[in-house]
Amino acid sequence: MAKVVNRMHPDFATQSYVIEAFKGVALVTRQFARNIFAKKDVVTVQYPEDRRPYTPRFRGKHRLMLRDDKSVRCVACMLCATACPANCITIVAQQIDDPAIEKAPSSFDIDLLKCIYCGFCEEACPCDAIRLDSGVHTIPSFTRRDQKAGVINLLSLGTASIAAQGGEHRAHSHEGTAHGRSSGH
């Protein structure tokens, strides 16, 4: 469909540029006075002191969630490592005594230099164990080793999840219903 473009045909006064220039000067001066004396329209965020809050959906540094007894929720099922398009998750599983849980990670490493923060791991996780909602922007470092977030590192950001999880005792899963974003049974 043809679109009609309305061309501007400014009159002579506009084209002579002089009056328009002074109009512009007046406009700019008004804005200057407004920013000095009246309501400030300034939108600058003074970065290191003030930070703009991230949106709730922001995917930051990973964290591993905890059970009520402070043990890792992760059962080393490898779904996140499988789903990961960047192959940045390395899980080493170990057997644990609880017959209902059977497995837990002995190490859970994420190479933050490889991670693309797509969030597929938290989508894949059946246990609500891994999340990217810590709100922490990945911190730069001087060595590559510092970017390997080990299990301890990830746990330090962890908090207890109230989502029900298979193998947990009935008493611990209070309502027994799923809360939060991703939770499986």
Binding site: V28, T29, Q31, F32, N35, I36, D41, V42, V43, T44, Q46
Partner: peptide, 10 residues
């Protein structure tokens, strides 16, 4: 500074 203030910057 002047250009900043009239462009809503600091």
């Amino acid at each position: 500074k002047y250009s900043a203030v009239l462009q809503n910057r600091i």
